[in-house]
């Protein structure tokens, strides 16, 4: 890499699509160079003029490089502005940054893709990749948990994937009304019933930290090795280059050593209060 990586590049919003009540997917142009390849699991820093910059995972297909998708939940000053952008608006973009999902290390193994809530967004590029190269992987099991049927992200796509004979999709929600025909319960409780070979499985987990912790426990109980469980961590980030120190977590900087880290690197620290 070269140049000043702290300087954003202006890019245009091409499309904006509402996903959930407070969640939108922005499709951005891939920069004036028109080409900004990324790996599933990486993120960009998105800057709103005069307001600030936040890290947002890439949620689109890394197999096409025309556009960059980011799924944003409007929760703060920057993400509220991001979610309200219209086509032809301009944002500042830096990236892509970070280490992504173990798409190579997972080859030949059964994949357990476990997502919670908006955690499906950083995993979607991994799913696209797996479907594009389906022959490289064994069983593909997608577990998705969210709050309620109204909070299911990418519901249409989940429906499509669940129709495929070569993908096993299990969706569960914390609470539901009477018209929900699907499962109610938490994601970790789906693991014991899966009947998979833990020796031959690679798990990719993304969601709220508590959900990841409980899921890791279930995966370990099922016999999956710590080295084969990958998590996408979230910490405060200002630079994305390992310089600002904010995302330091034990022996890692989440921004450049992660955000995807294998569990053996954070074991003991993840459940430690306020670490």
């Amino acid at each position: 890499m070269s140049g000043d990586l702290m300087i954003p590049e202006p890019v245009r919003v091409l499309r904006r699509q509402q996903e959930l009540a407070t969640t939108w997917t922005l499709e951005l142009e891939s920069g004036p160079a028109g080409h900004r390849p990324f790996l599933p699991g990486q993120f960009n820093m998105l800057y709103i003029f005069g307001v600030g910059e936040v890290p947002i995972s890439l949620s689109g297909d890394a197999g096409q490089t025309e556009t960059l998708s980011h799924t944003v939940r409007a929760v703060g000053p920057v993400s509220n502005k991001l979610a309200a952008l219209k086509p032809m608006d301009t944002v500042g973009l830096r990236g892509p940054f970070g280490v992504g999902w173990p798409m190579t290390a997972g080859e030949g193994a059964d994949l357990l893709i476990v997502a919670g809530g908006l955690g499906l967004a950083p995993l979607r590029p991994a799913i696209y990749h797996v479907l594009r190269h389906r022959e490289r992987y064994g069983r593909v099991i997608l577990l998705y948990g969210t709050r309620s049927p109204d909070d299911i992200l990418y519901a249409g796509q989940l429906e499509e994937w669940s129709k495929r004979p070569d993908v096993e999709v299990h969706i569960t929600v914390d609470h539901a009304g009477g018209d929900w025909p699907g499962k109610i319960g938490v994601v970790p409780s789906l693991v014991p019933a899966l009947d998979f070979d833990p020796e031959d499985a690679v798990a990719m987990v993304c969601g709220p930290e508590i959900m990841m912790r409980f899921t890791v426990n279930a995966l370990r109980d099922a016999g999956v090795e710590d080295e084969s469980i990958y998590l996408s961590m979230e910490r405060n980030m200002k630079c994305a280059l390992g310089h600002c120190g904010h995302c330091q977590f034990g022996s890692t900087f989440v921004c450049k050593d992660g955000p995807v880290l294998s569990f053996d690197r954070v074991r003991g620290l993840l459940s430690l209060k306020e670490f």
């Binding site: 702290m6 800057y47 003029f49 005069g50 307001v51 600030g52 910059e53 200002k238 630079c239 310089h243 600002c244 120190g245 904010h246």
Partner: peptide, 26 residues
């Protein structure tokens, strides 16, 4: 100790903005 944070400022007209970096502390 090397930690820094960033500060974003803009003028009242919303025409120019600046980003600076300053020492921060854990």
């Amino acid at each position: 100790c090397f930690c820094t944070t960033v500060e974003d400022t803009s003028d009242l007209e919303g025409v120019t903005a600046e980003r600076s970096r300053r020492w921060d502390s854990c």
